[in-house]
Simulated scan of single mutants.
Amino acid sequence: MTDRLRERRLALLDEHFASEVEQAFDRTLATFADTPRYEIIPTGQVHEGAEEVLAYHRAQRTAFPDQRHENVRFHVSDRDSIVAEFDLLGTNLGEFAGSPATGKAFRVPTIAVFFFDGELLVNERVYLDTASMLRQIDRMDLLPGV
C-alpha cells in the first residue's frame, strides 16, 4: 500500500468516527462506497444499505445518545483493511431492546475491522463484549441463561 492510500484511508476513518459521535449520519454514510454495510458480530446483526445502516444508527443513538469512542488506535494492514481498537462508551438514556432506559453507563473494549476497496470503505465489522455491556447497564435479562 502506498503512503498516500494509507493516509487517505486513515483520514476517512477519522471522519467516520467523528460523524458517528456527532450523529451526522449523512456524513457517516458518505464514508462508504455504494452500499454501506455493518456487521455486529456478537449479535449476528448485518445492516446493509443506507436505510438499514441509518436505522441501526438511529436505534443506537435513541438508546445511547452519548455513545462515543475513546482511546482509538489504528492498525493498518498492507492490503484492504484497518483494525481499530477503542473503548466504546455510552449511557442508556432511551429505549433499548424494547425496554425503558436504565440510566446506567457502559465502557467496553471494542475492535472494528474496516474493509476497503481502494480508498473507499465497504464494510465495518464490529466485535465487542456485549455481556459486559449488558451487565453494566443493568440489562442482565437480555443474557441467555440468566
Rank of each mutant, 00 (worst) to 15 (best):
A105Q: 13
H16W: 08
Q136W: 06
R9V: 00
A33K: 05
E39D: 10
P36V: 02
L120E: 14
S19F: 04
L13Q: 03
A112S: 15
G44F: 05
D78Q: 13
E39N: 04
A24L: 07
V53A: 02
R8S: 08
G118T: 10
V53P: 00
V76Q: 09
P42N: 07
N123G: 02
F116D: 11
R68P: 02
I40G: 00
L29E: 04
E119W: 03
L142A: 08
D78H: 10
L5R: 14
G145R: 11
L5H: 05
A24V: 05
E22L: 09
F114S: 12
V53D: 00
D129I: 04
F116V: 08
R79K: 12
E48N: 06
T91S: 12
A101D: 09
L13A: 01
G49D: 07
T91P: 10
H75Q: 12
E85H: 13
I41Y: 01
H75P: 00
R37F: 01
F106G: 11
T91D: 10
M140T: 13
P109T: 06
V21T: 07
F25H: 11
A105E: 13
Q136R: 09
A112Q: 11
Y56I: 00
E124Q: 14
L13R: 01
D141W: 07
R9Q: 12
S81A: 15
T28Q: 03
L143F: 06
L89V: 11
F32G: 02
E85R: 14
F86G: 02
A97P: 03
L54H: 07
E51R: 12
H47L: 13
Y127P: 05
D129Q: 10
L88T: 11
G145T: 06
R68L: 06
F32W: 05
S19V: 04
V46W: 05
V113H: 06
P109N: 11
G118M: 09
L5E: 07
L13D: 01
L128Y: 14
L128D: 08
S99L: 15
R9S: 03
F115P: 00
L128A: 10
R4D: 12
L142G: 07
F74A: 13
F86Q: 08
D3E: 13
S99R: 15
L142V: 08
T91C: 10
K104I: 00
S19Y: 02
G49A: 07
D14I: 00
T2E: 05
L13W: 02
A18T: 06
F86V: 01
V126E: 12
L10N: 10
A11L: 07
N71I: 02
R4G: 04
R37A: 03
L128W: 14
A33N: 09
F114Y: 15
L5F: 01
L142W: 04
L88V: 08
I82A: 10
L88E: 13
F64Y: 09
A24E: 13
L89W: 07
T2V: 00
R58I: 01
E20A: 04
I111D: 01
V126L: 13
G118V: 09
S77G: 15
M133H: 10
E70D: 14
P36T: 05
L5M: 10
E39V: 15
G94F: 08
D66I: 03
R107M: 06
V83N: 03
I111L: 14
F25I: 05
R61Q: 11
M140E: 14
E70S: 14
